[in-house]
Each structure stands twice: as C-alpha cells, then as structure tokens.
Amino acid sequence: MSTLVRIHELTKNFQRGSELVQVLQRLDLEIPQGDFLALMGPSGSGKSTLLNLIGGLDRPTSGSIEVAGHDISKLNDTALGRWRADNVGFVFQMYNLLPALTAQGNVELPLLLTSLSASERRQRAAAALQLVGLSERAQHKPRELSGGQEQRVGIARAIVSDPTLLLCDEPTGDLDRKSGDEVLDLLQALNDQQGKTIIMVTHDPRAAERARRVLHLEKGQLVRESV
C-alpha cells in the first residue's frame, strides 16, 4: 500500500506562561493508504495534538507533514481550509453538530463549499445519511436524536464530501457501549468496504481493537506499536 501520510521530525511546543511545554518531540510516522490506525496514550501524551496537526487544524513548531504528497505545513490558512474540505473528514467526541440545523442540514454543511447545486447537495447528504442508517431521521434536529444517532450524523457529515482521510477524536468517548459498538462497526465498514484511511484517537482498548494498528504515545513520543 502507498503511503498517504508521512510525518518527519514533527515537533510541537506550546508556551504556557513562562513555561515551554513540549507536546510532540521529533516524531516520525508513516500511515499507508487504507490503514485504520488507533492512537492511544495517557492524557497529555500528544494524541489529539498529533491528530490536529495531521488534519491541518494546527501548525507544527518544526518538522513536516505530507498528506498524499502535499506538505500541508507550508499551506496558508485559506489553502489549508480548502485542503481540509477536499481531503479530510472529522469526527468529534462531542459530535459537534450545529443545533440550529437538521441532520440533513448538518450533513450538507461541508457541501456548501463545493460547486454542487442545492438538489445535488440534498442527494449527496441523503445518500450519506442512508449509509449510516439515519434516512428516517433526516429532518430531525440534533436535540431530537440520541447520542449514538448524533455521532452517526457526525460520521455522515465527515464522509459526505468523500475524503480520503477520516480523523476521529474519541468517537465513542461519550457513548454507551451499544452505541459505541454501532459507531465502530460503521467506521470499520468504511475502512473495509470503501478503503477510507482512518486515524482514531481513543482511550478505549475495545475501540482500539477494531483498528489494524495501534500506536501508543507517551510524553510526545511513539513508544510502542501493536497490530
């Protein structure tokens, strides 16, 4: 499999008052296309920071991140935004749906940045909702959905623009076991059947078991890999 994400000597520091916090230290990592990778580690180990950097939500202090051959650390904010819209889908722990919009409206949101017509957007969003099994809840607002359903809408929003890379930050962290399993089933299906490359941050070993590879971070460094 070809390499989709190539990370070289990635360092990220934060300034907290007078103290310099080193979150990631000269980290090297390669993620092949079609991989399902779980990132585990204690709080403050740098998992979410690494996920944010791969997704272009934050900028590295030094080092480079190449995704599909593009060094995203060199893109300006506007180009980075456009790149995210075209290539990356995000799934959040707290779902982060817009409460004023229906499930359909939330899923359509990334498509507002495309040149698709309103009817094409509706069709694409309906197909994504069908894929996550929520067609009949399309016109419901987030507050009318259960946590598991909200997360499935979040996944539909992440995949509606057909990105190559899905970044999931604790996608089951706020769900009960049954709903969590449903979400993991869905992610696994997207990886197996549609070849989506998934990077998932999780504290839950049961969730990590679904991944093809598990990387363990501690104090900003990769300490172990298990398959």
Partner: peptide, 15 residues
C-alpha cells in the same frame, strides 16, 4: 464559538 470552530474545521475560511 465551538460551532464556528467546527465550520472552520470543515473548511470554511475566516472570511
């Protein structure tokens, strides 16, 4: 605030 963060995450520019 968080919704604006989500929109920017999805690719909406600051402008």
């Amino acid at each position: 605030t968080s919704e604006i963060g989500v929109m920017k995450t999805l690719g909406f520019s600051s402008a």
